[in-house]
């Protein structure tokens, strides 16, 4: 009897609540093979929350998330992350190189400073995203697309096997978008799983191998062409969400819905 390899990323009956209010209900999702995987859905549907739950950034009140069959704490070095751009203060006094080097901190630990090996790796990652000439520039002096590529380079510097990206293309010009996607496709071709929270249906249909449709719960998942059907899209975007929101409110207030 052959053993089945654990999925690269598995969400098992995951429910996420902010305070007491559930925002993601019982998500069951397993990604077994490396691919370019899109998480699609309306605004506020919980797509970013799903990613944050995987990384332990928001608490999971039901179920669990596993990477390669293990909890995140055991395999942190194999998971790379690109957070949303709005969370960052672009006036911060760091250079592009400083930011990319932060990707190496996971392996360096607390006390060691980045050395030659880390700097070479950082330069290589900057090269892959096409920013090597800007290494010494302060990050506030970059365009939106360039800033996003710096974050991508930082994630690449983590040398991970799974990459989770939260809206990496929001507010980015079309040329940069294509550039970023080319890099992501290269990463996938190297045998890594790339999970991207994405807002644009049209480009999603073009770029992703597989997608998951999320609207406070998992509506459908599978190969892109199979999932992005008019019926599924209607179920997601036309929303039966008011029900979930009302129940969520009732739970938060410890009462009942009317």
């Amino acid at each position: 009897m052959t053993a089945v390899a654990a999925p690269i990323l598995e969400f098992h009956d995951v429910t996420v609540a902010y305070g007491r209010r559930p925002v993601l209900w019982n998500v069951d999702l397993a990604i077994a093979e490396p691919c370019l995987f899109g998480v699609i859905g309306p605004n506020g549907a919980g797509k970013s929350t799903l990613l944050k739950a995987a990384l332990g950034l928001v608490p999971v009140v039901g179920g669990y998330v596993r990477f390669f069959g293990a909890p995140l704490d055991r395999v942190r070095g194999r998971v790379g992350y690109v957070p949303q751009r709005e969370t960052v203060d672009w006036d911060f006094p760091v250079s592009v190189m400083d930011v990319v080097l932060m990707g190496t901190y996971g392996r360096l630990g607390w006390l060691r400073r980045p050395g030659r090996r880390e700097r070479d790796l950082a330069r290589h990652c900057l090269d892959r995203v096409g920013l090597v000439g800007l290494a010494e520039r302060q990050i506030g002096r970059l365009s939106g697309g360039q800033q996003q590529r710096v974050f991508l380079a930082r994630a690449l510097a983590q040398e991970a096997d799974v990459y989770l990206l939260d809206e990496p293309l929001a507010g980015v010009d079309v040329r940069s978008q294509e550039q970023i996607f080319r890099v992501l496709a290269e990463v996938r071709d190297q045998g890594k799983l790339v999970v991207v929270v994405h807002h644009d249906l049209r480009t999603a249909a073009e770029w992703f191998d597989r997608v998951a449709l999320i609207d406070m719960r998992l509506v459908a998942t599978g190969p892109t062409a199979d999932v992005l059907t008019p019926d599924n899209l209607r179920r997601t975007y036309a929303g039966r969400v008011e029900l979930l929101e009302e129940i969520g409110r009732a739970v938060a207030e410890r009462g009942r819905t009317p």
Partner: peptide, 22 residues
């Protein structure tokens, strides 16, 4: 001086810092 890079990491992007286990 010893923990400078950690303070800067958290100050710049605490989501990323938490994701790498800090």
């Amino acid at each position: 001086a010893v923990a400078f890079k950690e303070f800067v990491l958290v100050a710049f992007d605490d989501a990323f810092a938490a994701a790498i286990g800090r």
